[in-house]
């Protein structure tokens, strides 16, 4: 069983970090994982995307055309990648920045106003954590307590921002449960 999640958004939205945290938690759960960035001559504010592969066996091809799920943090990402998601997958939509929907019937949309929730939690910079938490809660891919622990470890050197990110995390989980 292999699951692939594409994270996409603007550069600076913390896409790569969200993806890394998910991969890290899955690894801690004993899964095989790979984190594959799109790297290219991008500028600040340009598009950033990244794929996480979680598998119960050796991961072959790191090139994923059709991911199981998509986490879209901005409109260009949704428009570019929603069509690639495998039927039955989750398409996560950051409705704070995306006024449109995927227009697909064969996937499950998870619509969360990520930026608004993050601002309420203390900073818009925690938007990626809100999205990660909401997506993790909906997909059930990793244990939420373990994921929280991984976030705390990641921010260990910046302990000041941990409580705000934990608030953001819980709010993200709540939003997913209520959606």
């Amino acid at each position: 069983m292999q699951t692939e999640i594409k994270f996409a958004g603007f550069g600076g939205q913390g896409i790569l970090l969200s993806a890394k945290l998910l991969a890290y938690a899955a690894m801690k759960q004993g899964a095989e994982v790979a984190w594959i960035p799109s790297y290219g001559p991008e500028m600040r504010g340009g598009t950033a995307y990244c794929t996480v592969v979680i598998s119960d066996k050796y991961i072959g091809s790191p090139i994923i055309k059709n991911p199981t799920h998509l986490v879209a943090m901005n409109r260009p990402s949704l428009e570019k990648f929603a069509g690639d998601v495998k039927p039955g997958g989750i398409v996560f939509i950051n409705s704070s920045l995306i006024p449109v929907r995927s227009e697909r019937e064969d996937i499950m949309e998870l619509v969360v106003p990520v930026n608004d929730i993050a601002i309420e939690a203390g900073s818009v910079r925690a938007a990626n954590i809100v999205a990660l938490a909401a997506f993790a809660a909906k997909s059930g891919l990793v244990d939420l307590d373990l994921l929280k622990k991984c976030i705390k470890e990641e921010f260990a050197a910046k302990a000041k921002i941990i409580p705000m990110n934990m608030t953001a995390f819980d709010a993200g989980v709540k939003a997913a449960q209520e959606s």
Partner: peptide, 10 residues
């Protein structure tokens, strides 16, 4: 190659 350099794995 660039893929091996850039990707993260355990």
């Amino acid at each position: 190659d660039g893929m091996i350099g850039q990707m993260m794995e355990p």
